[in-house]
């Protein structure tokens, strides 16, 4: 571990952290669990004059459930989410993702905020939050705002957050009635980044047809993707019908994976189809059991 030299700042409160971000702007980088940032710094692929370690800010470490609304503090680790009974029972899609991030060592350190804000198209939680139509709460020294998950990702490693802003929490609210969601990821070996991942969430009406749907995609383009085309194709269709095939076609059209040694572009699009079918079936199964995602 031999990064280029930097100043290490360790604020004790959110207020102090936001002050430091305002002061240093582009020259500073937030260090949360360090599972993406530290490898990049250690290889000297990136360096920053200031690293702001936010791990002492305990106020951002929480999981709060009120009815069908879930709020997650940005510094909650992915292991804490994975181990939460409420999340596992009622937001299974989040458990699907968290129990499949890298390995337990990474999950013990990596945070929800880091996973969502690194802007890596291979991270798992962005697709899940896009499918669940989550809201991301951002805060800076000068104010607060919220942005939808689907609008957060601008380019590879680039999000809508300005250098002075920090993601402080995520809010998810699932509709009343029958609702199902699932995340399916395909990887070469345990611990690998995914070849492709698909998150799907939808309501199921009385006739067994899909209502409002959300579809998020992992590792299938330069950013985590929302497939509006797949959402539209799913809405009004049966979970085992033609609509799913159309959704796969639409999701493929919305994707733009590149060939690498994890798989060719064609293979990734093939995998997308297979896991999307599995994902919709899984979500539909869950929707039969009222009130869980």
């Amino acid at each position: 571990m031999t990064p280029a030299s930097f100043d290490y700042l360790s604020p004790a409160s959110l207020e102090e952290a936001l002050g430091l971000l305002k002061e240093h702007g582009d020259d500073a980088k937030i260090l949360a669990g360090g599972q993406s940032l530290i490898p990049l710094m250690k290889l000297r692929f990136t360096s920053f004059p200031y690293v702001i370690d936010v791990s002492r800010i305990k106020e951002l470490k929480y999981i709060r459930k009120e009815g069908r609304k879930l709020t997650i503090g940005a510094l909650t680790t992915t292991a804490e989410l994975e181990e939460s009974g409420e999340v596992r029972d009622e937001f299974q899609i989040i458990h699907d993702a968290c129990s499949n991030i890298a390995d337990p060592l990474v999950r013990n350190m990596g945070t929800v905020g880091g996973n969502l804000s690194h802007g890596d198209p291979g991270n798992d939680l962005p697709a899940v939050m896009i499918a669940l139509k989550a809201r991301f709460n951002l805060q800076s020294a000068s104010g607060k705002r919220s942005v939808s998950a689907g609008d957060y990702y601008k380019d590879t490693f680039t999000t809508d957050a300005s250098p002075e802003e920090m993601l402080v929490s995520v809010e998810i609210e699932i509709p009343d009635g029958r609702f199902g969601a699932a995340y399916v990821k395909h990887k070469r070996r345990a611990g690998d980044f995914s070849v492709a991942g698909v998150a799907v969430a939808f309501s199921l009406d009385g006739s067994g047809r899909l209502g409002s749907a959300g579809v998020g995609l992992t590792s299938l383009g330069p950013t985590p993707l929302r497939s509006a085309g797949a959402e539209k194709a799913l809405e009004g269709s049966k979970p085992d019908g033609e609509g799913v095939k159309k959704a796969v076609e639409a999701a493929r059209a919305d994707s733009n994976p590149s060939s690498d040694f994890y798989g060719s572009r064609e293979y990734k699009l093939f995998v997308l189809g297979k896991i999307m079918e599995k994902c919709v079936a899984e979500a539909a199964g869950r929707a039969q059991k009222e009130g869980s995602a």
């Binding site: 070996r189 345990a190 690498d260 040694f261």
Partner: peptide, 16 residues
């Protein structure tokens, strides 16, 4: 080089 890490290089782990 595309395979810059031991993970990229595809070394198997215990699961296999």
């Amino acid at each position: 080089l595309l395979t810059g890490s031991i993970s990229d290089a595809g070394v198997l782990n215990a699961e296999s």
